[in-house]
Write a protein that binds this DNA or RNA. Sequence first.
DNA 1: GCCAACGTTGGC
DNA 2: GCCAACGTTGGC
Length: 153
Amino acid sequence: MNYWLFKSEPDEFGIDDLAACKRERWDGIRNYQARNLLRDQVAVGDQVLIYHSSCKKVGVAGVARVVAAAYPDPLQFDPDSQYFDPKSSPDNPRWISVDITFVEKFPNVLPLARIKAAPLLADMVLVKQGRLSIQPVQPDEWQVILEMVRQFG
DNA sequence: GCCAACGTTGGC
DNA sequence: GCCAACGTTGGC
């Protein structure tokens, strides 16, 4: 089983929305590095940190679990969607979705500033390559994050 | 709102 | 295939 971090803007879709709907298609990913991870590595049963970006409380907000592995993102075929891609086709889809389900909402969002300040998390992709929207998380990093949440919350 | 970092596009 | 121009992300 692998660990991941998915970014979302809580104004669009955050941990509370996930808790309310229980299961959600993670769509609209339009970055090749993130796409490749979704397509090749994200598997059913993997665990996911839900990260809130571009908002007041930037940081890790909770946990989700993967319930459906890679399949074509339907929005790429929808001309009315902002994620429509005219260069993609059902025969050869370019963009990938997975489904996740709600697991846990943290009592408090673990702030990015705390993550950046933690020596044990200095090698996190979040710290080193902040812009990637689907990121691998190492098992030891996962443990450190959850321990920090326990102390912070 | 600013701006640094980084990804994508397109001319050559 | 290089690289300049441009667009986007996302923290602050």
